[in-house]
Design a protein around this nucleic acid. Sequence first.
DNA 1: TTCCATAATGATATGGTGTATCACTTCCTA
DNA 2: TAGGAAGTGATACACCATATCATTATGGAA
Lengths: 144, 144
Amino acid sequence: MEIQTSPPNLMAALEDRGHRVTFSRKAIVNLLEQKHEGFTAEALSEELPSVSRATVYRTIKALLEAGAVCKLAAMDGSHVYSVSRTGHHHHHYVCVKCGAVEEFRAATVERMLRSIAAEIPGQVVDHRVELYVACDPCPAGEGA
Amino acid sequence: MEIQTSPPNLMAALEDRGHRVTFSRKAIVNLLEQKHEGFTAEALSEELPSVSRATVYRTIKALLEAGAVCKLAAMDGSHVYSVSRTGHHHHHYVCVKCGAVEEFRAATVERMLRSIAAEIPGQVVDHRVELYVACDPCPAGEGA
DNA sequence: TTCCATAATGATATGGTGTATCACTTCCTA
DNA sequence: TAGGAAGTGATACACCATATCATTATGGAA
C-alpha cells in the first residue's frame, strides 16, 4: 500500500478544463488546498460567507468533473467531498471521529476485485471501496 | 464466494422488534418480498398508492433498523434499498442497467480488509464495498 | 368480547442538499 | 480597451427524507 500526499493544484485543474480564474474560485480553492478532512458543501459555504452558496456548489461540481476532488459516502450514507491528492485511482478511509480523509492504493483491493469479477456473471464496470476508521492519533481525542 | 437466496420474512423481522402488524406494513412487505431489484423509497411509494408516503419511509427505516433491508449507494451516489436475503454480513453488486441487486460474501473481501487494516494507523470500524456490474443475462437487454 | 393505552397512520409542514433561472458583473482575448 | 462569453449572486425550485399532530387501528388485558 502506498500513501501519496502531493500538494494539489486545484485552480490548474479547473483551468485545464477551460474554466476561468475568478475571485470566488480562488477563495474556494485556497481554502480547499489546506483542508485535510472531508468537507460538505454546506460547511464550505459557511466558511466562505463572501461567496454565494450557488457558486460554492457549482465550483465543487466543476472540481469533481475535473477529478480534483472526490465524492465519497460517509458511514451514514451522506456525502462528503475530499480533495484528491493523487491523480491515480485510489480508495479512501475516513476517520469517523475527526473526519480526516486519507487516500490509499492497495494491490490487495485490485486483486480482490479481479477475483470477484471472475466469479460473478456479467462485467464489473465500477466499484466503491470505503473504510471507516478511528484514526490514531486523532485530533478529535482518543475517546472511543 | 457464496450466494444465498433464502426467502426473507420481513414482517417477522418487524415483529421481533416490537412493531405491530398493520395493513400498510403488510402491503409494503408483500411487495418487497417479491422484489429482486434495488428500489427507492419514492418508487415504492408510487407502487403503493394506498399507503401514505410517510408510512413507506417509516417502514423502510424500521426494516433498515431490523437489518431486513440494506441501504446502498448507486453508482451516482443516490440511495438504493435492497431486501436482505441473508442474515449474515455481505456486500452487494448492482446491475447498472436493470437495477438488480445481488448479495455476496467473499473471503477475499475480508482478507483484503484485514490486510489493509494492518497497514493503516488506527482501527477500522466499518467498511463499504460495492460493485457495479452489467449483469448477464440482463432483463434490460444486452446493449451496453 | 369489549375496552383502552399506545403504536401507527395520513396529511402536511419542514429541513437538508443540490440545481435552475436570470439579470448583472467579471474575465480574457483580440 | 472593448465586447462577448463565462461566471456570479439571489432566489426559486426540485428532490428526498423526517417531524408534527390530530385521528385511527392494533393487540393485550379485563
